[in-house]
């Protein structure tokens, strides 16, 4: 999390700990009636690729329904992919046997958004944190001590381990979720909106904790969030998603200083900053309308129906390309990849 854009060179020369290639995930849409026949597909994720490097935080951002959580789940094999490949330290997960998969599972853990829903209310905290150890037959050998250690690591008092989740506040519950995720000494943590349900004063403590854990334990984070401010703070690199596709991928600072895709630009310009003078003088790129349904996405560039550039700047002839051809995620001279036929950097902050 503390790496700067300058470190990216060295980052890319390393081997990724986690790689996703052309991930596709469709969900069937069923009709009404008794038969509930399949009448179509929701194209939740459409050809997403990324690499996550050791000790790196990759932010996956986008608005609701853009496919960021689905991507995270597919990567962890919590849901089967419709197509695509995921590899962990160079090993293709699709080709692994059950036993190897089980071993790899330990290396990748997830922390969910809702610290209320994701912890079983009937089980004391000690047991919640111990469960992964028991499942993998690691509890007998010093598990009790390990649980105490884990609770202390996330800033909770080990002596409170016999209490139940409802006796803890939201921020503390999220820490319990993190302790549990750390139990098997994973290399990768997938954090799905880990602080979105928390008030800001509490959020900050959890974000600092995640930052510390990363540098102490050398973890890699796939950090999924709708909150661009949080992602700027935690991520080394950021992938922006729109309707199932990554539209821009850049080192964090670069994304905010030189966003190239019209959607990223609109997103950055739409988010209010806690500074009244800046707010009064800021330029806004307002995009109209709502996100189209992923069951029936626009042809070509999926953002074109809301794109201010498409609407206000492009000629009829130029627009044809947006309608007919899916823009690839490649560097078009802006220094980092973006999926816009007419990518152009802008300065917004």
């Amino acid at each position: 999390m503390t790496e700067t854009a300058l470190d990216v060179e060295s980052t890319t020369s390393r081997t990724p700990v986690l790689s996703a290639r052309d991930i596709v995930k469709h969900f069937p849409v069923h009709g009404g009636g008794i038969l509930r026949r399949r009448i179509g597909d929701v194209h939740a994720v459409c050809g997403v690729s990324f690499d996550l490097y050791p000790n790196e935080t990759l932010g996956l951002v986008g608005e609701s329904g853009c496919g960021k959580s689905t991507t995270a789940r597919v990567v962890l094999n919590l849901q089967p992919a419709t197509a695509g490949e995921v590899s962990f330290e160079g090993q293709n997960l699709n080709t692994l046997g059950r036993k190897e998969m089980r071993r790899l599972r330990r290396s990748m853990q997830i922390v969910f958004q809702d610290p209320y829903a994701s912890l079983d209310p009937r089980i004391p905290v000690n047991e919640i944190v111990a469960e992964p150890l028991r499942i993998h037959g690691l509890y007998e050998n010093g598990g009790k001590e390990r649980v105490r250690e884990l609770l202390a690591t996330v800033g909770l008092r080990p002596e409170h381990g016999n209490r139940f989740p409802h006796e803890f506040s939201g921020g503390q519950r999220q820490r319990i979720g993190v302790a549990r995720a750390l139990a098997l000494e994973p290399k990768v943590l997938v954090l799905d909106e880990p602080v979105s349900a928390l008030d800001v004063s509490i959020q900050a403590g959890v974000l600092n904790l995640l930052q510390d854990l990363q540098s102490e334990l050398g973890l890699s984070y796939l950090f999924v969030s709708h909150d661009l401010s949080v992602v700027r703070h935690v991520a080394d690199r950021i992938a922006v998603m729109y309707l199932g596709r990554i539209v821009e991928l850049a080192p964090a600072e670069e994304l905010f200083e030189r966003p190239a895709h019209p959607y990223t630009q609109a997103l950055i310009s739409a988010i209010p900053v806690p500074d009244p003078r800046k707010e009064r003088t800021r330029q806004r790129i307002v995009i109209t309308g709502d996100v189209p349904s992923p069951a029936n996405p626009p042809s070509g560039c999926r953002f074109r129906t809301r794109c201010p550039k498409f609407a206000n700047e492009l000629s009829e002839g130029e627009r044809k390309l947006c309608i007919d051809e899916v823009p690839e995620l490649v560097d078009r001279g802006q220094g980092h990849p973006s999926a816009c036929h007419y990518a152009e950097t802008a300065q917004l902050l």
Binding site: V154, G155, R175, L209
Partner: peptide, 8 residues
């Protein structure tokens, strides 16, 4: 990051 918070 974290004072050992009292559970409450």
């Amino acid at each position: 990051a974290d004072d050992p918070l009292p559970a409450g």
